[in-house]
């Protein structure tokens, strides 16, 4: 009896590290920036050639523009974003106590619009929501990511991790199959990155516009021929939360530029 138990334990001990082998050790984590060519890096580094900065400028204008029937601007409550918003995006998606679930930065902006400005929500991926979230996240540039630190968010990080590890779609691939196991290799000529979401919302040259992490996740899902989750669904938010928690400690780059 004890003999078999010992064998079982030994077998478990031997397979447990193998199950975790896919995960990238903290000091081997790399931003998507390090996978890019020198031209695209230069474009991101220079604020006058980074097209994402056009959205940050738009967001700055929206920050002080009054909206909704409350006739209040973001600045009326939050003041100067350079102080009040510094480091905020680094901890999003964050746990919302009233809703008892994590919300993304875009959802937080729309919650603010609904509760404090009495304004209509901005549609996902619309220019205004991207501009506002880029402006807010830009205030955290260089700040270390802290998302997922909240103990209440832990079950959702775990849910996101499970989704990341779960195979899906006609190609039957999980996120981890590419982004943990095969980064630095190429997929149709493009480098496979580690999927560290340090620069969202970011300007993708392929999109010719700024886009959210959810847009990026949805196009990956379409890529493996899976049915993509809708914008704002709990699954997509959990995945986003897991990815941000996975990049914990890495500096924010918003607005990043990616090919």
């Amino acid at each position: 009896m004890n003999f078999w138990r010992a064998i079982m334990l030994a077998a478990l001990a031997a397979t447990a590290p193998a199950l975790l082998a896919g995960e990238i050790p903290p000091d081997a984590r790399r931003s998507g920036y390090s996978f890019m060519g020198p031209d695209t890096r230069a474009m991101q580094d220079d604020d006058t050639s980074n097209p994402g900065m056009l959205f940050v400028l738009d967001g700055e204008a929206l920050w002080t523009k009054k909206a909704g029937s409350a006739d209040k601007a973001c600045a009326d409550c939050h003041g100067d974003a350079r102080n009040s918003m510094k480091g905020v995006a680094a901890r999003y998606p964050a746990f919302d106590k009233t809703l008892a679930r994590p919300v993304t930065l875009d959802q937080r902006i729309n919650l603010c619009r609904a509760n404090h400005q009495q304004a209509a929500p901005l549609p996902y991926e619309s220019r205004d929501i991207l501009a506002l979230s880029a402006f807010v996240a830009h205030q955290s540039r260089g700040v270390a990511i802290t998302a997922g630190d909240d103990p209440q968010a832990k079950p959702f990080v775990e849910q996101g991790r499970n989704l990341f590890m779960q195979r899906e779609g006609q190609l039957n691939l999980a996120c981890t199959n590419c982004h943990d196991d095969n980064f630095e290799k190429r997929l149709a000529g493009s480098p496979i990155t580690q999927a560290q979401p340090t620069g969202y919302p970011l300007y993708r040259l392929e999109w010719q516009t700024l886009g959210s992490l959810e847009r990026r996740l949805r196009s990956c899902m379409t890529g493996v021929r899976a049915q993509a989750y809708d914008y704002g669904t709990p699954e997509l938010v959990a995945l986003e939360l897991y990815l941000k928690a996975r990049a914990r400690g890495m500096p924010m780059e918003t607005p990043a530029v990616r090919p």
Partner: peptide, 8 residues
């Protein structure tokens, strides 16, 4: 529309 200009 927003524009970014870089002149020394």
């Amino acid at each position: 529309m927003a524009a970014l200009i870089n002149v020394p």
